[in-house]
């Protein structure tokens, strides 16, 4: 297992930095090209959510990203229940963990996202001058829709969002990771 850690201030400009870093590490780990866009978007959503939460509650506190090449499945490490791997094997994965320190709020929508958009938009309570016309939970719904495995763990210290994707799309035997 290889680890890259990134700590960012709670500034919107740094979300892009986090996206770029995650995509670069994922590519290096051997994630399939077709999944890189998903990782870029999911990591951006997780970091945007964390930045907004920090700006509201603890703007001086940093946000931490762990980019893990070769993690085991979330479900085997005590995380939230996750679907079985498609091939039935506990293959190694590329995992991104975004940890914030803002007071946790329970997600307002279930993680088995419906995908039809109902209830996600045109919130009557959103003021016309609000930045978003969407429910703030849409970002989490997008993460759930993109990541192969997801766990969202709110606790007294903040929220930990774990997202992972299977390795092996580009280098199924992992040999180039040994020599690179």
């Amino acid at each position: 297992m290889a680890l890259v850690q990134l700590t960012i201030s709670a500034l919107p400009a740094h979300v892009r930095t986090a996206r770029l870093m995650a995509t670069a590490v994922a590519r290096r780990a051997g994630i399939a090209e077709s999944a890189l866009d998903e990782i870029r978007l999911a990591v951006g959503e997780a970091c945007s959510r964390a930045v907004e939460a920090h700006r509201a509650h603890c703007p001086g506190q940093p946000i931490q990203l762990d980019l893990i090449d070769g993690a085991g499945p979330v479900s085997s490490r005590g995380g939230a229940p996750a679907p079985a791997p498609h091939n039935g094997q506990a293959a190694h994965r590329f995992e991104v963990v975004v940890s914030d320190r803002a007071p946790a709020q329970e997600p307002g929508i279930p993680l088995d996202h419906r995908g039809d958009g109902s209830g996600l938009f045109f919130d009557d309570h959103t003021p016309p001058d609000g930045v978003s016309g969407l429910s703030p939970d849409v970002g989490l719904a997008v993460i759930v829709g993109l990541a192969d495995e997801v766990s969202i763990e709110p606790n007294e210290k903040g929220t930990v969002v774990r997202m992972s994707w299977p390795l092996g799309g580009a280098d199924a035997d992992g040999t180039d990771r040994l020599v690179g």
Partner: peptide
């Protein structure tokens, strides 16, 4: 080149405004 849910929210907000 990239669009996230924040961008979607802005588009939805714009849609609400013109529909008014």
């Amino acid at each position: 080149e990239f669009l996230d849910s924040t961008g979607l929210g802005v588009l939805v907000g714009g849609l609400k405004r013109v529909r008014a």
